[in-house]
Amino acid sequence: MKILLMLSVVPDTTSKINFTDNDTRFDKTGIQFVINPHDEFGLTKAMQIKEKTGAELHVVHVGVQANESVIRKTLAIGADKAFRIDADPKDSYFTAAQLAEFIKDKDYDLIIAGRESIDYNGGMVPGIVSALTGIKFVNAVIGMELNGNNVTLDREIEGGKETLQTTLPLIIGGQKGLVREEELRIPNMRGIMMARKKPLEVLPAVDAPLTTEYVKFEKPPAKSAVKLIDKDNLDELIDLLHNEAKVI
């Protein structure tokens, strides 16, 4: 069995966000990049399957060279081989087209992606890859059981979940729930040493259209100061919620 993790590399969740070039580009200065949290759940799930079935685990990332340290982290956690497609992933369609081209002549049984990247919050790439490759896709996966070629999945829906049945090959958009929080892996010393010797292949990008373009960024308007209400005067709070906020 062969598993592929599609890895998105994002600013650490606590990053302060700034812009440069006249507010047309995200400013990477001083930003620490990490494995996209949704992909972290996917990576752990992939490792669990690998340990159970002896599957081979590859990682692919479309991105710049600076992200290789984050790719190495997935190797340190236990992936066997990584690929970086050398391009700036600034458009989801473009990125998906790179990944689809990469997947096309391989024979991955299971392709694990995340529900969304927490930087641009797109939630777009895995579905587009599915449409371009014809490989089935289930999104927002919060649980998955493999049984030979059969797969049972739980997908998060409004107010609950849906259980689905399908077969490999398959692409999933995973998220929290796929594994338990305490199962998440962090690299250990031995893993880090081993990762240095594992292959990280760099591939050129293929031609693909840029369907969107970011033209400007701004920060959301600042909140005005909070109105503090004395805990012994909750009538005032109710009055504000009723007459000012008009929410009750």
């Binding site: 966000i17 995200f26 259209p209 970011y214």
Partner: peptide, 16 residues
């Protein structure tokens, strides 16, 4: 659109 988990608002052009 919102981006960076609500820490930014981006203007984006759709070209198709």
């Amino acid at each position: 659109r919102k981006a960076f988990s609500n820490k930014a608002i981006a203007s984006v052009t759709l070209k198709t």
